[in-house]
Amino acid sequence: MRGVKILERALAAIPIMLGVCIVVFIFMRLIPGDPVDIMLGEASNVTQEEIDALRAQFNLDEPIHVQLTTYLTRVLKGDLGYSISRSANVRDLLLEALPATVELALSSITLALLVAVPLGIMTAVRHRSAVDRTSMAASFLGISMPAFWLGIVLILIFAVRLKWLPTSGRATYGFVPTHVTGLYVLDSILTGDVPALKDSLRHLVLPSIALGAAPAAVITRVIRSSMLEVMRKDYVTFARAKGVAEWAVILKHVFRNALIPAVTVTGLEIGSLLGGNMVVETIFGWPGMGRLVVDGIFSRDYSLVQGAVMVYGFTFVAVNLIADILYTWLNPKLVIGEKV
């Protein structure tokens, strides 16, 4: 029964993806500007024939519905098209940029969890204590601080003044690990390349803090509030009355049951980290999806933006689906699809 529900949800993703595809396709063409003109830049003595030839080459001379059909057919065959501004296949470009974004998102969320889980438990246990109040104030700050400004401040302090960490980029030349997955940290562990591991971790620190601050704050708050809620339940009082050690009560009974909303929120935070960090990527010179797609919009690189947004859409749908599945799995009383 549950399997069927999951399958149903997965199938419901198909029209969403189709919708994303069509919306971005039309949206890009509504933005004024001609990709061929941008591609030619300041080229002088260009003839109209040359321009027409280029337009034909990228199928830009056909009516829009024909272009859309052609594009959709190609996408179904796994061909995301050719990027005008970067002279490369969109799929290759995305496969290059995606690991960078994924690595940054994963490291940010790891950092966030490392802070949030202990802090969330502690604030719940020491409810209304000084620790609780300070952490809650700090978490509000974390939520309210724009990531890009935090990034600038971090660069200013740790890279420019103290010179502890690099200002930008993913790796110093010579420290790029052999390509396995495209995630530098994972690759350097897999190949046993210690200097490369150190180097990529050093590059990850500042952008991860900048991006991880807000999720850390959110997750702390969620863990705290759901633990507080669980602690009021009868079975917790009962367990305490039975003489179970306090730490065991907290970890076994309270934390486990408070985990459900935390997992959901973590999932959603990963989703938004994968989708919304182009300003931070720009500041840290991170060669990820965000820079690719912003640049694509500015150079009217239709195929590139379409491809990238489809990846975003797919990630969003997938992350939501996984969060839903986890939610029901942790909380068997619920049926998938009923969550608002």
């Binding site: 971005v24 989708g275 975003y312």
Partner: peptide, 10 residues
């Protein structure tokens, strides 16, 4: 649902 799948800033 379609709009939600777009990153806001983009």
């Amino acid at each position: 649902e379609v709009l939600l799948a777009f990153p806001y800033l983009i």
